[in-house]
Design a protein around this nucleic acid. Sequence first.
DNA 1: CTGTGACTGGAAGTCCGTG
DNA 2: CCACGGACTTCCAGTCACA
Lengths: 69, 69
Amino acid sequence: MRMWLKEIRLQKNLTQEQTAFKSNISRSYYTHIESGVKKPTVETAKDIAFALEFKWTNFFESQCSLKEQ
Amino acid sequence: MRMWLKEIRLQKNLTQEQTAFKSNISRSYYTHIESGVKKPTVETAKDIAFALEFKWTNFFESQCSLKEQ
DNA sequence: CTGTGACTGGAAGTCCGTG
DNA sequence: CCACGGACTTCCAGTCACA
């Protein structure tokens, strides 16, 4: 579970669907990423990070940590 | 061509084979990466970056630039 | 609105022959 | 000895459909 991701999303009052849309990926894939099942590529990570306004390296620095920024 | 990669390697006086070995990947795969044919995963990028002592994000910040650091 | 299993195209990574 | 690159296999990012 990538709690930090979920938390960032909720802080922005976005649904998974809205976030997925802003990131140009499918809703279900975003769900997989948030749950930790799938790991995004760098490109996708950048898109999501841009959509939620955090730095994309978060995905690869703190794999599953609760760190929020 | 990822010239910046080659240059870093040469600066350290390492062959492709030695670098590949230090990065735990095959020699030919390292060749592919240096030539720009293949794109390493984050994990592999980290390994190579560690072997050649530069920051792994270089791979994803400056795709094919001549930027050296 | 979210979770998840099944599926697939394409890319990661290797092997091996060549220059 | 060192590097290039085609051919091949394996695996997983990303989607769809259903719950």
